[in-house]
């Protein structure tokens, strides 16, 4: 059992005997010392989606699922195809890539964790930190090297995020995949 507050997106909880994948888990402080978790859930068996609330210390039954290392291979509309270490192809739906989709691009080499339930992939997790190249950003602001001033940058797949103002087109940057935030400029 885990408390509602400890459950992370991608994990699976059992409700009335059915497995539900947690797609989002938002924490809100209510009055006094109480807190509430609002979860977006998807039923693994029938795809039904719902939103629920829990007290943050409500105990939930969660299940540990089989995991496998995979890497992204190609997009075969509407499926995203990953391969495992045995070169077995695994097709994954867009909805099951919710937290990853924004970082998927051709040629990416990140080793991801595919999570299975009854032999079906229900989610894919990226490493905590990934490196991506900036495809476009406005020219740097002269004189600012502190990194505190930010500007918008676009990645090769069109995803946009705030980066330090000294970053240039073609630079490689580290991204925290849990927060979605820029971490640092790196050399390659």
């Amino acid at each position: 059992m885990k408390t509602a507050q400890e459950i992370k997106p991608g994990q699976v909880i059992m409700i009335d005997g059915s497995p539900w994948k947690v797609q989002k888990n938002e924490f809100n402080r209510a009055g006094r010392s109480s807190a509430i978790n609002k979860m977006k859930l998807k039923n693994i068996l029938n795809g039904m989606q719902t939103e629920t609330t829990f007290k943050c210390d409500d105990k939930l039954e969660y299940i540990v699922l089989e995991q496998k290392e995979v890497t992204y291979s190609y997009f075969a509309d509407p499926m995203y195809v990953f391969v495992d270490s045995d070169y077995e192809q695994i097709e994954i739906e867009k909805d099951d890539l919710e937290n990853v989709l924004m970082y998927i691009e051709d040629g990416m080499e990140d080793v991801c964790q595919a999570v299975f339930y009854n032999n079906k992939v229900i989610s894919v997790d990226l490493p905590k930190t990934i490196v991506r190249q900036i495809a476009y950003t406005e020219p740097s602001v002269r004189g600012d090297t502190s990194g505190k001033v930010t500007k918008l940058a676009r990645l090769g797949n069109g995803h946009e995020l705030q980066v330090s103002s000294f970053c240039e087109i073609g630079d490689y940057i580290e991204i925290d995949t849990l927060t979605g935030e820029y971490k640092a400029r790196v050399k390659r």
Binding site: I15, N28, G31, R32, K38, E51, T53, F54, K55, D58
Partner: peptide, 22 residues
């Protein structure tokens, strides 16, 4: 679960949601 009063915007998103208890 009758909660505390708050004017925060998330309250409207959580009001009336179910909380499965098995």
């Amino acid at each position: 679960n009758l909660e505390y009063l708050s004017a925060e915007t998330w309250v409207k998103d959580c009001h009336g949601l179910s909380s499965p208890q098995n």
